Simulated scan of single mutants.
Amino acid sequence: MFMSNDVYQLNSKRLRVLWSNPEVIYYIDIDNDRALPEYAPRDEFEHLMAKSELKIIEDPHINISMTFPESGSKSESIQNRAWSAIQDAISAEPDVYLKRYRGKLLTQAMDKSGATKQTIYRWFRRYWQLGMCKNTLNGQYNRCGGLGKTKKIGDKKLGAPRTRTPGDGINVDDNIKAIFRVAIEKCLLNENQYEFDYAYNQVLIAFGVPLPCKPEHLLDVPTERQFRYFYNKEYSPLEITRKRKGEINYQKDFRPVLSSSTTEVSGPGSRYQIDATIADVYLVSADDRNKVIGRPTLYFVVDVFSRAIVGMYVGLENASWVSAM
């Protein structure tokens, strides 16, 4: 209990154990950007654990500590530089966790690496808060770029410049998005199931482009690629299918299957299912084979758990509850 690198939940705080012995525990708040190591008597942690106020949880940053940078990448170079700078300091446990000793270790790291005090402290925090291993010091370029955030539109065209078609293109602002939505909802999100090209043609018509159009007509209008990007970003596949197929057909043939009958039974014999269908054959009379007496109705009873057929019945009456009994 209270091993190094364990993560605990205390009220709204998440704490990582940095170092411990039978008397004291050093820890850090992993969610505070300005956190520094703190310490508490071990019996205080044990008392909180006994009252269920302190609970051990999974490491929320395990994916960072288990992800290695690509060999030869800039991320690996940043990691090696940071590791080389703080390796000696973080190894001086528990002195590095105490303010009166940490200053001297910090100065040594600054002299060794040439980094500033703020940079060394940032490396310390990342090492302590994210998992206490070398991988926590990599470049973390996966956090760059504003993933999922809408870019602000300015005077410059967003995205890569054109290389195969003339012109610079235009940005998709709120007015263009409104036109896109009208075309999508009238052409693509209904049971008429128009093709995508038809919907894009409606956008071109809204911009006054004559059809059929020429390349010079498309210099200052949204491209089909911009229209398709907006369509895929703003409308989910489930929403599209529900609108294009209709609610009844969607529920019958296209809705996601989130469970199965076997999840509701404990074993063989827990539940049976019965179904009836009219066979695609005609029966003749046993007395006169020239007389057709009708198509038979077949009943099957299936054990839900094992899928075994446990009962079968063939009759000439229509499918009904009375016949099933």
Score class of each variant (00 low, 15 high):
residue 16 R to F: 02
residue 139 G to N: 13
residue 298 L to G: 01
residue 150 T to M: 02
residue 14 R to A: 06
residue 165 T to G: 04
residue 297 T to S: 15
residue 19 W to P: 06
residue 59 D to E: 02
residue 241 T to Y: 02
residue 207 F to I: 04
residue 129 Q to P: 01
residue 294 G to L: 10
residue 322 V to K: 09
residue 1 M to V: 08
residue 86 I to C: 09
residue 319 A to Q: 10
residue 169 G to Y: 04
residue 116 T to M: 07
residue 216 E to V: 09
residue 40 A to R: 14
residue 194 Y to T: 05
residue 67 T to L: 07
residue 2 F to N: 11
residue 219 L to K: 12
residue 129 Q to Y: 05
residue 271 R to D: 03
residue 70 E to I: 12
residue 185 E to Y: 00
residue 55 K to T: 13
residue 27 Y to L: 12
residue 218 L to W: 03
residue 131 G to K: 06
residue 173 D to N: 15
residue 277 T to K: 09
residue 3 M to Y: 03
residue 235 Y to C: 09
residue 27 Y to F: 15
residue 182 V to Q: 08
residue 303 D to P: 01
residue 94 P to N: 07
residue 260 S to P: 01
residue 47 H to C: 07
residue 279 A to G: 00
residue 185 E to G: 03
residue 192 N to C: 06
residue 44 E to W: 05
residue 301 V to L: 10
residue 192 N to E: 14
residue 325 M to I: 13
residue 1 M to H: 10
residue 251 Q to S: 11
residue 197 D to Y: 01
residue 69 P to R: 03
residue 292 V to G: 00
residue 116 T to G: 15
residue 174 D to C: 03
residue 203 V to Q: 02
residue 211 L to S: 04
residue 211 L to I: 13
residue 108 Q to M: 11
residue 148 G to N: 13
residue 92 A to Q: 15
residue 255 R to T: 14
residue 30 I to R: 08
residue 202 Q to N: 09
residue 37 P to Y: 06
residue 245 K to H: 06
residue 49 M to N: 02
residue 217 H to L: 01
residue 4 S to F: 00
residue 24 V to Y: 05
residue 118 Q to T: 15
residue 147 L to D: 13
residue 98 L to H: 04
residue 196 F to K: 07
residue 80 N to T: 07
residue 141 Y to L: 10
residue 133 C to R: 11
residue 118 Q to M: 13
residue 181 R to V: 05
residue 115 A to N: 07
residue 102 R to S: 11
residue 147 L to P: 00
residue 163 T to N: 05
residue 227 F to M: 10
residue 137 L to R: 10
residue 166 P to A: 14
residue 96 V to G: 11
residue 142 N to Y: 10
residue 137 L to Y: 02
residue 140 Q to V: 03
residue 291 K to R: 08
residue 195 E to F: 06
residue 79 Q to A: 11
residue 111 D to V: 10
residue 212 P to T: 10
residue 12 S to H: 12
residue 197 D to C: 05
residue 258 L to S: 15
residue 122 R to C: 11
residue 312 M to W: 00
residue 117 K to Y: 15
residue 200 Y to R: 08
residue 35 A to F: 02
residue 70 E to W: 00
residue 190 N to P: 02
residue 272 Y to E: 03
residue 272 Y to G: 04
residue 210 P to Q: 05
residue 181 R to S: 05
residue 241 T to A: 15
residue 268 P to D: 02
residue 315 G to N: 14
residue 225 R to G: 06
residue 116 T to W: 01
residue 255 R to L: 10
residue 250 Y to R: 11
residue 258 L to M: 13
residue 211 L to H: 01
residue 289 R to D: 10
residue 167 G to Y: 02
residue 37 P to L: 11
residue 200 Y to E: 02
residue 194 Y to N: 15
residue 219 L to M: 06
residue 33 D to G: 12
residue 258 L to C: 13
residue 218 L to P: 00
residue 110 M to D: 07
residue 284 V to M: 05
residue 9 Q to C: 09
residue 283 L to E: 07
residue 299 Y to G: 08
residue 185 E to T: 12
residue 103 G to K: 14
residue 165 T to D: 09
residue 308 A to Q: 11
